[in-house]
Design a protein around this nucleic acid. Structure first.
Lengths: 131, 131
DNA sequence: GAGCTTGTTGCGAATCGTTCCCATCAAGGT
DNA sequence: ACCTTGATGGGAACGATTCGCAACAAGCTC
């Protein structure tokens, strides 16, 4: 093999904090949590590791409505999200309907290699009653 | 009424170029097209007008996979997009299946005021055969 | 048309998220 | 212990977008 991947406490730290966060977190958030804990990890490293974890399928990412990349420790398999605009609570949702629809529509238009971005934003019950 | 909206040649210019562009364009792209034509319009103004047109429902916007805001002059009504990753060609698609699915899933989880982001990216026929 | 009010503009500075560069460090095999 | 080379950190660099503000001008009113 050519590319060997090494384990560093930094990557472990990112993985750990990501796992214990509920909902999606931004790289910056993760970074400040880590620094506040006294870690000397660098911002660039957080970004690198998040990207790597995402690529490895250990995390998934999405863009918030205002263009920030958010990450979340992820159960395997393709799925989408239902996210509370107010408190950030997230539910993973399976959507075979949508998967099927996406590839069908793509095919109908002669498109291949379809990727889709499908995420729902709303207000959860708890936040609604608070307002 | 309190907020009166004025018509400026700048807004008109943005509207015009946006309309004649096929597919989605970024604010920056629009800006350089305009400047290349000799316009003295400012970048901030392009952003401001795009935001305004979007809010007014004359354009719709989405984020490209790499986090840039793209805009397109828009036929009215809610719809989604199928975009060629390679040449940028865009097809508007109606997706009642998805609309219905979105609100159903939202409701099942007790969420209200559901907004959804649903866009498909793929490679169109033409680009595929070129490769 | 003159005058006034106030939405708009252009510009440069300022943010913000993210990536790059690179000398230094250290993980994991030998 | 010793190398090789992936990984790190930090500060500079970047690209997209927004802000601040003084100068402008659109659309009244008279």
């Amino acid at each position: 093999m050519s590319t060997t991947k090494r384990n560093t406490w930094q990557r472990e730290a990112v993985r750990a904090r990501l796992a214990e966060a509920q909902g999606f977190v931004s790289a910056q958030q993760l970074y400040s949590v880590l620094r506040d804990e006294g870690s000397t990890i660098g911002l660039a490293t957080v970004y690198r590791n998040l990207a790597q974890l995402t690529e490895a399928g250990e995390a998934d990412s999405l863009q918030s409505l205002d263009g920030e990349n958010l990450f979340r420790s992820c159960s395997t398999g393709h799925h989408h999200h239902l996210i509370c605009r107010s408190c950030g609570e997230t539910r993973e949702i399976k959507a075979s309907v949508v998967e099927e629809w996406a590839s069908r529509v793509g095919a109908e238009h002669g498109f291949s290699e379809i990727e889709h971005v499908v995420d729902l934003f709303g207000v959860c019950e708890r936040c609604r009653s608070k307002a």
